[in-house]
Design a binder for these strands. Structure first.
Lengths: 231, 231
DNA sequence: TTATTAATTCGTCAACTGACGACAAAACGA
DNA sequence: TCGTTTTGTCGTCAGTTGACGAATTAATAA
């Protein structure tokens, strides 16, 4: 994120700020790792906006460097995409969530609200969602599917915690349990999709929306479980 | 990508493989409107799978015709895409839903379940979702935004009907009301996304999932509204 | 049959696009 | 100051890709 400033300069066309008076052409020199990091940073935004089919020449321009230079850091475009994916998609999940969600000194609805607020802010961002959707649609197997595993864990924790506070005994079928937690998790994810992908104009604040969803989930929890037992 | 040995024999008609002994190359002749319809049909599948950036040559091959022929029916690729969009996306909404959802001779949960089952089957299909997402991501303004208007209507009907049956007085703010209905509508939409885009393996039946969501919504309805009044 | 019309293909252009070999120049060390 | 290392660019190749003029062939009418 602090690379932001660099990105700006880069996008402002190298010499734009008159950095080097005599620099006839060419980007400002940068050490290998720094340049590589800058490229990744710009690339994540770039591919999120333009899709994985975004062109390397355009990306290079946004970085303020020549297209050829990209290939000094990444053997192929696919390698670059994979790196972006690993950094931006997989890096967006926090381990603390598991701890906080299970901190029973707080009511479960408070924990859920806190978690989903943070989740919306740090993970379900425009950049993350767009990259993830582009990758999913392309069926690009950029990385082993850690995400599914992480979310599965989250869903199980959510169910366990709510059930505990409500004194409800959960059904045994783990698939059923996960699907139940998805009623909450999916609704909030879809809210983010509406916001960032469908560009809907949403007038309510994120906080309001989150508490609405959590409230509904907690309130209908026991009933939902009863219904499924009947099935 | 192996060239389908039989390009499109599969597409019914068009005579079996060696249709005409003497026809060295070239597709079976078809009247204008029929051919046009066939192209649109194949194209909707094609672009749903390969994205709006799918190539015309590949599409033509799937249709069993030359690439040039496409341009006899559609001036540009964009025109073709627009047609596909109008036909497949906008054509997937049924007017009966509004009637059935308001048929108070049935309990609202029954109506909701019936509606969402049908909605999942007829609208939230793999083809529809993929086309819609590709178009949304590309910010391709293929058509005036009828969809938002249709769904807004649906959401309002849902809220009105549930509130009526539960004897609950609804808040005035229409934006808030819509957002509430989205807790159900979004959760089900997201279920479809998981199924068709993320390719998750979902073990529960669609019917089970729908009743779960509806149950949760109806059960937590009053509580959710109370909470929002407090806000 | 023959003329006419409509369906269909061939071949090609120009702009793009990922990739890379060869070379220029800034930074660095002694 | 000079040579070496490292960052960076130029130019280009080969394969795509949307688009279209012109020729070809099947169906239909006369």
């Amino acid at each position: 994120m602090q690379a932001r400033s660099m990105t700006k300069e880069g996008s402002s066309k190298v010499g734009g700020a008159g950095s080097k008076p005599g620099s006839p052409q060419g980007a400002v020199r940068m050490p290998f790792n720094e340049r590589r990091a800058q490229i990744l940073d710009v690339a994540s935004d770039f591919f999120a906006e333009n899709g994985l089919a975004g062109q390397t020449r355009q990306l290079a321009e946004k970085c303020g460097i020549s297209q050829r230079l990209l290939y000094r850091f990444f053997p192929t475009k696919e390698d670059l995409l994979r790196e972006v994916y690993n950094q931006e998609i997989l890096g967006a999940f926090k381990a603390v969530w598991f701890v906080e969600l299970q901190d029973r000194s707080q009511p479960v609805s408070v924990r859920l609200e806190a978690f989903y607020r943070d989740y919306l802010q740090s993970t379900l961002t425009r950049k993350w969602l767009r990259l993830f959707l582009y990758a999913s649609l392309a069926e690009a197997n950029m990385a082993p599917d850690y995400i599914a595993a992480i979310i599965t864990q989250l869903l199980e924790v959510v169910m366990r915690e709510v059930a505990h506070e409500k004194g409800v005994v959960l059904p045994a079928d783990p698939a059923l349990l996960r699907e139940m937690a998805w009623t909450l998790h999916g609704a909030i994810s879809h809210y983010a999709i509406r916001r960032h992908i469908y560009q809907s104009s949403l007038s309510l604040s994120e906080d309001q929306v989150v508490s609405m969803h959590v409230r509904l989930f907690v309130a209908g929890f026991a009933d939902m479980i009863d219904a499924c037992r009947g099935d």
